[in-house]
Design a protein around this nucleic acid. Structure first.
Lengths: 339, 339
DNA sequence: AATCGTACCGCAAACGTTTGCAGAAGACCC
DNA sequence: GGGTCTTCTGCAAACGTTTGCGGTACGATT
């Protein structure tokens, strides 16, 4: 068995492998006649070039490595979809790994992908990732790297992000304008740039409107629905509830939503709620969730595009940061307050 | 630049590349002393084996190809997650492609993956796929293939499916027991095995309960939310509505849900609704959607497992079909009818 | 008729591994 | 001290490509 190789083809046609190779790649040295013969035979025997061999020889492959915290998270699967889309368009295939939000696995993933000699790496770091040695290692080895969504700012790579600060600011202003004053923030892990940026947007929006951030309403958790569920439990354990909550993302908001519903807390009458991402579920729950739309698909597309650009550029390339537009989708969960 | 190779390592240690290779793989011929030296140096210089070269030489790679209709569909992203999970566990990486529900792209995807000499292929066919030449081609080339969810039954491959017939049957019986009589079915494209099986379950459940399938209530569409939206439009265009609808999957059910809500059709009072998959949104809409839970994650896990088994087996392998359990999740959208 | 140019093709090395085989060095036996 | 066994290591070929360079054959030019 085994695949049909260029040598087999050469033997069939009684020419040298090199001739076949050149014929297939339309090299001017080869006569039209033999080009045709080769093409016909290749078709007939269903010859498919061995990408492994090709990549080995050219010292560069046409696969792109992707590392995300969790594939099944709607945001990331949409990003991956976007990545695959343009990768496909440019003749690349993608290798996808998930870190499961752990640093250990993220490290193994990067090594595996480098070991597979991917042309470049696209990554959104795990929530545990606070040391970047593995990533700077990748850079040191000359593997192009583009970060998206959850980025470490210190690293000199291209980045694709959204204006988290501005989006959070806008969301909070919206809440304030809707009549909510005592606004809480259910954030992600501390120390992550993305969290910090959203927090600062929240904080500044409060400050600029003469409101103060109440520490007890500023809680930390993870990125998953269960984290939201737990977070809501913490709010419920307080002596009083905030008037509104800005959740770090939609899954968390949904978790809060569920927990509150169980507890008989009405949304938005008792507590207004705003999420981040616009997952499909957001629009469907009742009341529908006000959320910050993030162009996940575009984030993916842009990330590969930057990577490909870097691949073209070879030496003279400078990291570039693309900040994509968000859009606040105002829905029922933050209906103007009536007292 | 360029990665550190086994040759570089050999030069540093003043031994032959073959010795380094053997030392790294713990070959008994090599003395403990040099093994240690090699290990230390490999660590020091951060040597990472070139998988491409390895795969080329061994004539088999450690990457698994995955083709799904759409990555962002919750069901598939969850399957992929499961696939990645066990692939990772066994030292494999996965290459993921989406066919976007088109045959043309599915063909290109399979070729690309074969060209990359994946160890095996995992596929859920597109809704357009009615000719299987590309897949039998893959088999003819000796590339292990496992189908999941949307399978073509004629092909002699391992398969991972759920009992679509039984699940649909159960769902319809549930509707009947809840007092619904005139039950419609919003199916997918005709000619797809999965659709046929679910249809038959629907049909037989009706028949076994002395009810007849009304042709006008049996419509066809696609797998996406928009297809459900459109399908609902078709129902609305009829002179009357069915009492209940079994949708081919959750996104479609959600589309129906949305369209009906717009039209003022109440669920389940005017029309009851049942979906398939249990996407996250299903439980969150109001009323929550009754649906058939499919163990997406397990489907993914099982698919790789079967593939790995086949890879071990070498010659003496016989295709195997695993049918995973579904579970009907009864929720508000099919509340017992009150007349 | 000798030279040159051109058009086309093959040889062989290389990419980074693995592996069968042979070889070197020492230990052991008689 | 010559032979045989071990133990360890290196050589070289191979996996399927690509590519620099050299070579052949032929027609054209002087």
């Amino acid at each position: 068995m085994g695949q049909f190789t260029i040598k087999d083809l050469a033997k069939k046609l009684d020419v040298a492998p090199s001739t076949v190779s050149r014929a297939l790649r339309d090299h001017p040295d080869i006569s039209e006649a033999t080009k045709k013969r080769v093409a016909v035979a290749a078709e007939k025997y269903n010859y498919q070039p061995n990408q492994l061999a090709q990549s080995l020889q050219k010292k560069c492959s046409n696969t792109i490595g992707v590392i995300v915290p969790e594939i099944r998270h709607d945001f990331f699967s949409t990003v991956i979809s976007g990545i695959e889309e343009v990768a496909y368009e440019f003749g690349y295939t993608i290798m996808v790994c998930q870190s499961n939000e752990t640093l250990a696995r993220e490290i193994i993933n990067t090594q595996a992908l480098v070991s597979n000699r991917v042309a470049g790496l696209l990554i959104a770091i795990s929530s545990e990732t606070t040391s970047y040695e593995h990533l700077s290692g990748v850079l040191r080895q000359g593997v192009p790297l583009v970060q998206f969504d959850r980025v470490v700012e210190e690293l000199p790579t291209s980045k694709v992000v959204v204006d988290d600060y501005g989006a959070a600011y806008e969301a909070v202003v919206h809440l304030i304008e809707s009549g909510y004053r005592r606004i809480g923030h259910l954030a992600g892990q501390e120390g992550i740039a993305l969290n910090r940026r959203r927090y600062e947007g929240y904080r500044d929006a409060m400050r600029d409107n003469g409101l103060e951030v109440e520490k007890k309403f500023h809680l930390h958790g993870g990125y998953r629905e269960e984290d939201g569920y737990k977070g809501a439990g913490k709010y419920l354990a307080l002596d009083e509830l905030p008037e509104a909550i800005l959740a770090i993302n939609d899954p968390v908001a949904v978790g809060v939503f569920t927990r509150f519903k169980e507890a008989g807390v009405r949304i938005p009458d008792d507590v207004a709620l705003v999420g981040f991402s616009d997952t499909p579920a957001a629009a469907l729950i009742d009341p529908p969730l006000t959320t910050v739309y993030q162009p996940a698909f575009e984030i993916g597309r842009t990330a590969v595009t930057l990577l490909l650009k870097q691949l073209e550029a070879e030496g003279e390339f400078v990291p570039e940061t693309r900040t994509l537009e968000t859009r606040l989708l105002v829905r029922g969960s933050s209906r103007p307050k009536v007292d």
